[in-house]
């Protein structure tokens, strides 16, 4: 088996194992109020981190580029209660327009 095949298949097995492990942990572990409460606030940290990585990370570097304009426009749209799809499309268009204008 070539190196590429080993890498692809082994990484796939491990990835699935990691995903499945979260479903095999007994649910009662999560029914303790402390843990379930902590798990309800956890998404805010994860989602905020995803926003930051998607906006500012380029590999291991922090960069300020057209994605920031997209994010600002998305934030304005959200503050005006725009629907989800409108927020996403406006964010993409703003970044694309910024790049077309020659920045970021």
């Amino acid at each position: 088996m070539s190196a590429s095949w080993t890498a692809v298949l082994l990484a796939s097995v491990i990835a699935f194992g990691l995903k499945l492990s979260g479903y095999l942990i007994p649910p009662r572990w999560l029914e303790q109020p402390r843990i379930s409460s902590a798990l309800t606030v956890l998404p805010a940290a994860l989602l905020a981190a995803l926003v930051m990585t998607q906006t500012f990370a380029t590999g291991r570097h922090l960069t300020v580029d057209a994605r920031v304009i997209g994010l600002v426009v998305a934030a304005i749209a959200l503050s005006r209660r725009a629907p989800f799809i409108v927020v996403v499309v406006l964010g993409a268009l703003a970044a694309a327009a910024t790049r077309a204008a020659g920045w970021g």
Binding site: V51, Q54, V73, R99
Partner: peptide, 22 residues
């Protein structure tokens, strides 16, 4: 794909998802 702003679309989507929690 960045030419089409698709990377910013993902950031906008995650922002929209975290927004109500803020």
């Amino acid at each position: 794909p960045r030419t089409y702003g698709l990377d910013a679309a993902a950031a906008a989507a995650f922002l929209a998802l975290v927004w109500p929690r803020l």
